[in-house]
Nucleic acid binder design. Structure first.
Lengths: 109, 109
DNA sequence: CTAATACATAAGTATTTGCTTATATATTCT
DNA sequence: AGAATATATAAGCAAATACTTATGTATTAG
C-alpha cells in the first residue's frame, strides 16, 4: 500500500494546474525537451524547471541528457500511489458502482 | 472527460494529509458525526469543519442533519474527475505496462 | 426561558507555494 | 578560448493555505 507521505507528495505535485499541464505535455509527447515545454506553458523557463524538479522528485518523470538538451519522459510508476490509493478503496466503490476496472474500461472507449 | 478545473480542485482537496485523513475516516465508517471526526483528528473542531466544507465543495462528502449532530457520508461521485483523468491516460499506461484494469485487479487481491 | 451541546463561520497569523528576475552550470560552435 | 545555447539554481515576493482563538447559529435539555 502506498504510504501516507508519498501519496501526499504525489497529490500536491499534481494539484497545481501548470505543473500538471507540464506532466500531461510530457506524457502525450513521450519525450520532450525543456524548451518545448516552456513554449507550451504560459510561464518562464525557471518556472518550468522548478515544476520539472517537483515532477522528478515525485517520480513522475525521468530525464535524459542529449548534448545541451535535456529530454524528459514520463515515468508511469510515479502514479502508483494514486492507483494504489484508489485500489485501497476499491471495495468501497464496488458497493456503490460496479467494478472500478469496468468503469475504467467503459471510460476508455 | 473531467475538466481541468474540477480536477485541480479535487487534487488540491485531497492533497492535504489532514483533510484526506478526514475523508478516509468518513469513507471507512460510512457515516459519522463531526465530533467523532474531531476526536480522531489531531486538530481543532473548526479546523475539521473547514476541511469538511472543502470536501463538500469538492463533492466528496454529503451531510445529513440529525438533531444537534450532523452526519457526514462519502459521495463516490466526487472522485470521478480523478478516475476520469487516469482513464484519459489509460491508453498511455497500457503501452508501457499491461492494462490498467488488470493492474487494479492485481492490487485488489 | 435559559443553559448546554454540536457545529459553523470570522478574523488573524505563520507557513507554504508558485511565480519572477538574476545568476550559475553545462554543452556546443566558431 | 570565448560566445552562444539550454537548462538549473538562488533569492525575493505576493498569494494561497491550514491552523489557531473567538464568536455565531441551531438544536435539545432542564
Amino acid at each position: 500500500m502506498a504510504d501516507h507521505n508519498s501519496m501526499t507528495q504525489l497529490m500536491k505535485t499534481l494539484a497545481d494546474p501548470t505543473r500538471r499541464a507540464v506532466f500531461e505535455a510530457i506524457a502525450q509527447r513521450g519525450e520532450v525537451t525543456v524548451g518545448t515545454l516552456v513554449s507550451g506553458s504560459g510561464v518562464s523557463q525557471p518556472a518550468v524547471s522548478q515544476h520539472l524538479r517537483a515532477l522528478k522528485t515525485a517520480g513522475l518523470v525521468a530525464e535524459r541528457r542529449a548534448g545541451r538538451h535535456i529530454h524528459y519522459r514520463p515515468d508511469p510508476r510515479g502514479l502508483a500511489p494514486l492507483i494504489d490509493w484508489l485500489g485501497f478503496y476499491g471495495a468501497f466503490w464496488r458497493e456503490r458502482f460496479d467494478n472500478l476496472a469496468e468503469l475504467l474500461k467503459r471510460m476508455d472507449s
